Simulated assay, not measured.
Amino acid sequence: MALRLACISVDLDSLHHYCRIHGLPESVLDARARGLVYSTAVPRFRELLRSVGAPGTFFAIGEDLADARSAEALRDAHRAGIEVGNHSYSHDYALTRRAPESIREELVRGEEAILAATGTRPVGFRAPGYTLNAALYAATAERGYLYGSSTFPAAPYYAAKAAVMGALALAGRPSRSILDSPRVLLAPRTPYRPDPSQPYRRGTGPVLELPMAVTPGVRLPFIGTFVATLPLPAVHAAWHACRRDTLFNFELHAVDVLDANDGIPPQLVRQQRDLRVSSTRKMERLAAIFRWLKEDADLVTLRVAAERLAPTV
């Protein structure tokens, strides 16, 4: 049976967030590097989507839009038909550890920044670091979101993240990322309505959850880093394993179309191995996968997917 729906979404995380992940000082980034996501990655993704006739969803961080050029780049993307979702205001990896009022403020400020830039209030939310809990889910429900897309039940990713965070801590360079509850490993891998008190379990919550694509069984993650660094036959096998799913939610990051030659400091390139792969090669690989999606599925934005799936989930 052919896949019914597929979506392409891009998290517009600026490079200073990667410095925080890897325990590097943000001072390694010059002004050009700090602006690379909107000056370089956004136009590349727009061209990539346009070249294959694919729609897309960008998740924007509110504080980045204080820069007029970044806000203009996002506005232009929105006018071209790209959906813009809320990725919080400051992309605090520890957002779920905040008080409920502070969590709500992060959502509201992110919404306001996106509304000011695009003229449209977002209806979708993705949590920083894919980390979801009851308080954050309650905030999305209170704000009237149509969907969330934060659940990432990928066991290999979880194990690798734990190992890297442990190694950084031992090296005296602790990561500012956090490790999610292991309950995420048992979360549904297909669209579901969460239990508001335990959002990694099925329930009757009002905000539909659209998890990131992972394969059945071992739950191998199908995200940008995976497709950029593994041999194409392995990527194709993972894609084939997911083809019976109701929704294939292909999640990427802005760095998935950047490389070391774009002016990224070597300290960060050493830590973020996919930056060693040329942007040309990565874009060619992504274009091929986008074509797979378009040939086998109805390729839509996450908003459209949520609207179609909501009555049946």
Rank of each mutant, 00 (worst) to 15 (best):
1 M>G: 11
3 L>S: 10
7 C>M: 01
9 S>E: 04
17 H>C: 02
20 R>M: 07
21 I>V: 13
21 I>C: 00
22 H>P: 04
27 S>G: 07
30 D>I: 09
32 R>H: 15
34 R>M: 12
34 R>D: 13
37 V>S: 11
38 Y>F: 14
41 A>T: 01
42 V>N: 07
43 P>L: 04
44 R>S: 05
44 R>P: 02
45 F>Y: 15
47 E>M: 13
48 L>Q: 09
49 L>R: 02
49 L>P: 00
56 G>R: 01
56 G>I: 04
57 T>A: 03
58 F>G: 01
60 A>D: 06
61 I>K: 08
62 G>S: 09
64 D>N: 15
68 A>F: 04
71 A>S: 13
72 E>L: 15
73 A>H: 07
74 L>R: 04
77 A>Y: 07
81 G>Y: 10
83 E>I: 01
87 H>L: 08
93 Y>T: 02
95 L>M: 14
102 S>F: 03
105 E>D: 10
106 E>R: 08
108 V>W: 03
109 R>W: 11
113 A>D: 05
113 A>C: 08
115 L>W: 06
115 L>E: 14
116 A>Y: 06
119 G>N: 11
121 R>H: 09
127 A>P: 02
138 A>M: 09
139 A>N: 05
143 R>D: 06
149 S>F: 00
150 S>W: 01
151 T>D: 01
152 F>G: 01
155 A>H: 05
159 A>D: 11
162 A>C: 13
163 A>P: 03
167 A>C: 09
169 A>I: 05
173 R>M: 07
175 S>L: 12
180 D>G: 02
188 P>M: 05
188 P>C: 04
189 R>N: 02
189 R>E: 00
190 T>D: 11
195 D>W: 09
196 P>E: 10
198 Q>S: 14
200 Y>W: 15
202 R>T: 10
211 P>Q: 13
211 P>D: 10
214 V>H: 06
215 T>E: 13
222 F>L: 15
225 T>Y: 11
229 T>L: 15
230 L>I: 11
231 P>M: 07
232 L>D: 14
237 A>M: 08
239 W>C: 04
241 A>M: 06
244 R>F: 03
247 L>D: 08
248 F>P: 03
249 N>T: 08
249 N>L: 11
250 F>P: 02
260 A>K: 12
263 G>R: 12
267 Q>Y: 01
268 L>H: 05
269 V>K: 10
278 S>A: 12
279 S>H: 12
280 T>I: 12
281 R>A: 13
281 R>F: 04
282 K>V: 04
288 A>E: 06
290 F>C: 12
292 W>K: 06
293 L>D: 00
294 K>I: 01
295 E>P: 05
300 V>A: 07
301 T>E: 05
302 L>F: 00
306 A>C: 07
309 L>M: 14
310 A>I: 01
310 A>C: 07
